[in-house]
Amino acid sequence: MAGGLGIARVLAHCGGSPVAAVHYLAGAIASAPENPEPYTALAELWRDRRPELAEVVQGADAPRTVLARSYISFLEGDMDDAALAIGSVTGVQPDTAWAEAPWFGDERFLGAVSADALAEAAMRTMDYGHGLDSDSMRERFRPWFHAIDVVAARRPLPDALARMAILLRACGLTEESFALCRRADSVERIMLTEVVRAGTWRKLGDLEQTAAAFERALALDPANWSLHLDLADVRAEQGDFTAAVRLTDEGLRREPAELTLRAAGAAYRARLTGSPAALGELIELAPKLPNGSYRGLLIDHACAGPALPADLVAAARSILDT
């Protein structure tokens, strides 16, 4: 860290490249995000060479440059952009405790960042699907949990709280996720909160509670075809293919052309009734599904239907090999 910081200071004050200076400063921050020295040097660089540095950080997407932008946005009082930028960097590399940055816990940041921006930043930390449910990750994300507590108390917007609760769930803090959902409910009951709650119950392996949450979500937004599909999938997982068919049919009445809904409906009809026509429809639709694991799940369900022709079952199974 000290070497990178020294090089950055030379580049900053001896006519060197501001791009290279930012690179080395960001490297120093990455080696010890909690150390205030690189931030002090970056603040000096911003003060002395603002026009050049602005060109470097505006619209940049390289992780180190986005990291520098997060602190510069803080210096400029743009706390929402600061949050979004550090969320993006965290999503790329959550193994580094980026939020240990002194500014992230500063009262100026926590008192001004909007609930929506912090929620979006929290979602960005999960962009690349890294596993966050471990003691080491929970320790790295501790500043995020504190920020969520502060902002949720200051500005309890239900949609934002629900999205923040997704991060808590991803980190294995299921009780805390439920608590944030209850806080959102105390302001206003919305569909998203129930969907988040359903996902948390699913993570805990309680399918009946998962289904109950999706039922409440549907009561709040009955025209939402995606909720019909979500609940149908849960009922299929429980072995209730009668309910699964009914739910996909209801969804199709609202969105008859939706590919995934049509495929699920065909799979569940084939499983329930042994309909060759339904399995044939799934064979036609399945290769177009974007999610391979879901495609395989539907085919497995459908091929377990009663007395289906062996050649159709073989044709469906062959899709899994392509």
Rank of each mutant, 00 (worst) to 15 (best):
Ala160Phe: 07
Ala184Val: 05
Leu180Glu: 04
Met164Ser: 07
Cys171Met: 11
Ala179Thr: 14
Arg189Cys: 03
Arg216Gly: 03
Phe178Tyr: 14
Leu157Val: 15
Ser186Met: 09
Val195Thr: 09
Cys181Leu: 02
Glu176Lys: 05
Leu168Cys: 12
Ala165Tyr: 01
Leu192Asn: 05
Glu176His: 02
Trp201Phe: 14
Arg189Pro: 02
Leu204Lys: 08
Cys181Ile: 12
Leu180Thr: 04
Leu207Asp: 12
Thr174Pro: 02
Met191His: 02
Ala165Thr: 04
Ala170Thr: 11
Gly172Thr: 13
Ala160Asn: 11
Cys181Glu: 03
Val187Thr: 13
Pro158Lys: 00
Arg189Leu: 04
Ser186Val: 04
Val195Phe: 00
Ala211Thr: 12
Ala212Glu: 15
Arg154Cys: 03
Val196Pro: 05
Leu173Val: 09
Leu167Lys: 04
Ala212Pro: 07
Thr210Val: 12
Ser186Arg: 08
Arg197Glu: 01
Ala217Arg: 03
Arg183Ala: 06
Ala198His: 06
Ala165Asn: 01
Leu218Trp: 07
Asp159Lys: 07
Leu173Ser: 07
Leu180Pro: 08
Asp206Leu: 10
Arg202His: 06
Arg154Asp: 06
Arg169Met: 14
Glu215Pro: 03
Glu194Ala: 07
Arg202Trp: 02
Ala198Ile: 13
Gly205Leu: 07
Ala170Phe: 06
Arg183Asn: 01
Glu194Cys: 09
Arg183Ser: 03
Ala162Gln: 01
Arg197Tyr: 00
Asp206Lys: 04
Leu207Tyr: 06
Arg154Ala: 10
Phe178Ile: 13
Pro156Thr: 01
Arg183Tyr: 01
Leu192Thr: 12
Gly205Trp: 03
Ile166Asp: 11
Ala165Ile: 12
Gly172Phe: 05
Glu176Trp: 01
Thr200Arg: 00
Glu208Ile: 13
Glu188Met: 05
Ala211Met: 09
